[in-house]
Design a protein around this nucleic acid. Sequence first.
DNA 1: GTGAAAGCGCTAACAC
DNA 2: GTGTTAGCGCTTTCAC
Lengths: 364, 364
Amino acid sequence: MKKRTVGRVSAPTVYDVAERSGVSIATVSRVYRNPDSVRAQTREKVMEAARELGYVPSGSARGLASRTTGVLGLCFPDYADPDAETAAAASDADDDQAVMLYSDQIIRGMERAARRHGYALLIAASLDGGPESLVAKVAGRVDGFAVLARTVPTEDLEVISRRLPVVMLAGPREIDHLDHIVVANTEGERELTRHLIEDHGLRRLAFIGSEENSPDAEARFRGFQEGCRDAGLPVPSRPELRAGMMTQAEGALAAGTLLDRSEGTGVERPEAMLFANDQMAVGALQALERRGVRVPEDIAVTGFDGIPLSRIVRPPLTTVRQPIRQLGEQAVELLVQRLADPGRAPVSLELPVSVTRRASCGCG
Amino acid sequence: MKKRTVGRVSAPTVYDVAERSGVSIATVSRVYRNPDSVRAQTREKVMEAARELGYVPSGSARGLASRTTGVLGLCFPDYADPDAETAAAASDADDDQAVMLYSDQIIRGMERAARRHGYALLIAASLDGGPESLVAKVAGRVDGFAVLARTVPTEDLEVISRRLPVVMLAGPREIDHLDHIVVANTEGERELTRHLIEDHGLRRLAFIGSEENSPDAEARFRGFQEGCRDAGLPVPSRPELRAGMMTQAEGALAAGTLLDRSEGTGVERPEAMLFANDQMAVGALQALERRGVRVPEDIAVTGFDGIPLSRIVRPPLTTVRQPIRQLGEQAVELLVQRLADPGRAPVSLELPVSVTRRASCGCG
DNA sequence: GTGAAAGCGCTAACAC
DNA sequence: GTGTTAGCGCTTTCAC
């Protein structure tokens, strides 16, 4: 309780509160950390002084002294192109909004789970590498964090994960000593494919995927391949078409392309279009309607993800439901577990998915 | 570069990196804070040592020393009831998901804007008060933060806002020295009401609101009142009905109640139901369909918010579009401005809304 | 361009 | 139950 006798300029500290309430800084600290360890009367004195002074404990100082932050983090990819956004029309903006749902749901899931465990959530979209990247900023301010696949350079992760728990989400296991969580992409698409073939008797199936560096889309395509193979159908070596961002617009485009392809040439039109995600499937639904092609009478359409939209479009979309929010929640559980037991062996979870049969494939 | 000569157990620090690369800790710090102020050769040495050691700068130590965190915060209300969630059916879960959209979008907006300014975002749903509340944790770890209305006790805010910038979102101005942002709830509902009356010639309008402590719903109701008064229609003194959480389920219930009311008694059925938000309106649409009441032929239905769902339901919902994401973005702008100029007078923004005319009111 | 030294505000033993 | 005393790991003048 010495020093610091000169004019107040900056925010009040424990010293100020201690002085004003006539106790030591340790007691002030206790009041905030463990109120029950302080006599009620003393506690009141301290809290009143704090109120009068406008005291707010410094999280940084706390973190430094206690070596924990009480915060978990999430790094996700920077999907949106800010320039494109400015010029975007209203409908595009809506589309964009829907695209973001994925990370939104993970955020939601993590936030919930984090809160249950008494943590707050620090989120940041990846920008670039370098010493002063956002990732580094996050890493330094949390007790552990989750990373969406292809967000942070593997080398950075390698370094960071030596110092605090990191869990990889929805992607290939780039670093094998990290916990990681995926959804059963392959199994889901395989089951969906089986359903179309066996239950609806469809033969000519077209899978619309994404760029090759999209691990989810690729895994789903593998499921499609397996489904074809299981049924004794020809197994395509690559998707019928590849979209870039997997948006509604691109789905509409893809549907049109597939239709044109069969009209111009003598090629038979596919009996089903399996899209790598719901966004594209929804766009396709609209494009098909515009062209007067009926779903599912003329052609079946399926998606993947199980976003809210899929239930609401007409016809309702048959899809594979991904437990995205659970992904976020599980990420937190893994983080919390590892924080409690740093020595535990790396865990690899695969979350189950389920085929949701709706009208767009011919089901009730 | 003295002390710290004993066995390494914890994470490497500037001292370790400095020692290993043969420079002072000040230089290590410079490499991370301002790489250009260090000779390239020196910088390389440092970065290599850091890499080898697995060095990650401590955000807490940085924050403490520099008195800034590079993080902005958001506190939002804890809508979801964890217990109810467990028992929730699939459809309810979807509903819940949609309800969360509001804070999700604010998060998204803030995250974007924050990123543009080089900030990360710390989010936390409010729990309770007391010294160790999540709010206090957030407050201590950020340079400034936004608060959704009715999330944090006013008294806490009073104290906290004396030490760092706080902006209030979407609610009454509880503390007048704070920046705050609202959307034009009253104007929007008023214009919507005018549209129904003047353009569609409707007279018997029913407004379905929420509990009285919901400032948004109340403001919208006032707009409804003004619209009625403007048209020379009788001005109801309170909403026809009040829902609690403003969910789809409650909207469906409300629609049913209104229908029953007119059937049982001789009261004429309203020509239009104006719901205080889209969620309820969507639920009402479904309830109406089940009861064989046609929209908009038999009755017009409108919402408020402009969520993606509103565009997709059948018939598409006439609503008032709220720029929710902009709300988040503006919050960050205000925070950043105030950080740059703490002395600036408190700002109060009202974001414009726009009536989106769709089929559910009889348009297009 | 680089180093030395002084804190930043708090927690955590350890005494009393 | 409360006070004392060291740091926690970094940034930041100020010299050189």
